[in-house]
Design a protein around this nucleic acid. Sequence first.
RNA 1: GCGCGAUUAGCUCAGUUGGUAGAGCAGUUCAUUUACACUGAAAAGGUCGGGGGUUCGAGCCCCUCAUCGCGCACCA
Length: 729
Amino acid sequence: MNPQNNAEIPNIPPIFLKPFSAQDYENKLYAMWENSGYFNPDVCIEKGITASDAETFSIVMPPPNANGSLHAGHALFVTIQDIMIRYARMQGKRTLWLPGADHAGFETQVVYEKKLEKEGRSRFTMDPKDLYKEIMDFTLSNKSFMEGQIRALGASCDWSRALFTLDDRVIKTVYDTFLQLEKDNLLYRGARIVNWCSKHQTSLSNLETEHIERVDKFYYFQYGPFVIGTARPETKFGDKYVVMHPDDAQYAQYTHGQQIELEWINGPITATVIKDEAGDPEMGSGAMTITPWHSGIDFQVAKRHNLDYEQIINWQGKLLPIAGEFTGMNIKEAREKIVEKLAEKGLLVRVDENYTHSVPCCYKCDREIEPQIRAQWFVKTKPLAEKAVAAVNAKAFSFSTDRDERVFRDWMDKIEDWNISRQVIWGIPIPAKICVDCDAGMVDLANTVTECTACGGTVVADPDTFDTWFSSGQWPLATLNYPDSTDFKNYYPTSVMETGKDIIFFWVARMIMLGLYRTGNVPFKYVYLHGMVRDKHGKKMSKSKGNVIAPSEIQDKYGTDALRMALMVNNAPGSDMNLDPDKVNAYKKFANKIWNITRFVLSSTEEYQPNAPFTETDAEIINTILTAQITEISSLMDNNRFDLASERIYHFVWTYFADELIEASKPLLASTDVKVVQSQKRLLVTHLITSLKVLHPYMPFITEAIWQELPAEMKDSDMIMVAKWPGSK
RNA sequence: GCGCGAUUAGCUCAGUUGGUAGAGCAGUUCAUUUACACUGAAAAGGUCGGGGGUUCGAGCCCCUCAUCGCGCACCA
């Protein structure tokens, strides 16, 4: 290219004389948008951009964790939601996208604990208040960093309404719900088997565990006249009940409650026969001993027959004094030694070396979960789940794919009570007193409870915090300021909940249950779930594999618009996608193509007349081809098929506009017939404006950068962000 | 165990109600003061995992098998 030639063309703003460079524009343009106030629907109404009676479109943003950098999944969700929002805003809807930041309780505490570990410190030796303050400082500094990255992705969200999950309003909402649940008898505190992580020293919900398949040894021991099997000999010290199925013929001679003297690990014991349907005649010998404190099934058996419970393993994963000589040993090292001792005593029958089973582990540290009995707060979820299923039956909300709805229903059908207590510092304190003499708990928002209402015993403040998902589950209520705000009236239920399919149970299901519970209405009408972003070969991104693609690096190299397009094109809703830098590069080229299309159009449209009459041919192109293409694109967008719409737009701009229309225009522009030339100029400008508009939701920066350089007579608005979508009123 | 998904060009993936397949990247040939080389033109490349069925017609619907992946939940 020879700049001198171009410099002679008066119509081209100088910026078009070099290739598009995203870095030169993005920050400035975002600041311009943000300063305009147009992210805020109230401002749009004030300034006459949006009609005051316009249809609303609202999204509550899933608040990113304020504990680190954004990853590719964040870039994907920001892109999808921003496309929805920008499209709605251009259609003249009253459009709200409400951002936030998540303190992310346990998650953040784990991140912070790793930091402490590196510094040779531990949360267990710290004053809880100091720890809380340190994590707060850490989180707040990360929060502003994270919000900067959201801005860099082009998110046109209303920062004036931003909320943090530890803000007073959130806490008030959560406390109100907690109290309401108690009043409605949907809340209880009781000793139940919980998933205990002995590294993180907290209980976890079932969803916070993952099952890891392992091959372990499976031992058979002589237990009096019975042979019992176990993979966990270290729990067997207290086993004094032997359970068999009531109908198991091989044990017909034994009666329920019968006592048997037998030799066991640390000497003679008296065992009691329990007939219970938990015993499976097909499994092993059909007889089993139970450890009610450390097994869910055993706990149920013990509950049914009112048996004793005894803790064998302490909270740190070490054996308690009941283990005799093994007291204080870590369960892993104790296992082999216990087996050795049983073998010496002649009680080891045989060992199955290839026992394959999956064991529940902490999803953060992979350490085996130790089931423990602990008094915790539980929400009775069945009544809440029934309402949620009724709502989906009544089509009060729907999912982007049928399979998501099936997955949702499946989980709702077999939902169990939800443990909402966590032994975590970094979270919202549970506003309750707990009894030190029994397991009772009393909701105590006003701090007036002085003794146990169940036993009259001494009470203390509950040291626990809420499961983050309990508060996140009320996020739409808190952000829209339930119950009396105008935002709540205007925007609840929101139009769309867009989030990752991996948190359909953690978050989406909980928001539906709690939203329905508090307001009687679903929190959103449509659930769009995106898949995971993987590396270019479909592998999960992880630091250890070294295949993590940081959005900020991609943005620096190729531009944010290119990243956004790469994330959208051919990425079907709900399925995982692979992010290949080569694909991003393809859309960087596309950005430059748009740049040069503009340059050509501007350089060819001196003395452009906005009202020049179209020739018959050109009118035909406008009325049929252009209209048809835009209708199709809008229709795909209305159906949330941004993957298909973006590909269509790409070809509309490159294949049709650039390769066909512009090439065809070259001889026509050279025509001696002024009418043909003027019509052609108007045709090119019309296509340019239309292209920029339909591209804008996907590639907001370059389209706005160009828009700002266009002569006033070509455009219908100062900013393309609030320009009218083609075909909309 | 229960449930779900995938299998389409060398690679990574699209394909909305059934009408003999599309993109990006890679590769082939040609074009060089062209709006744009971050380019253009042209061609090449797939019996849509195997088998069976429904249909005038199947990548798409049904059955079955195989392989890969995911979710949930158990286990003495």
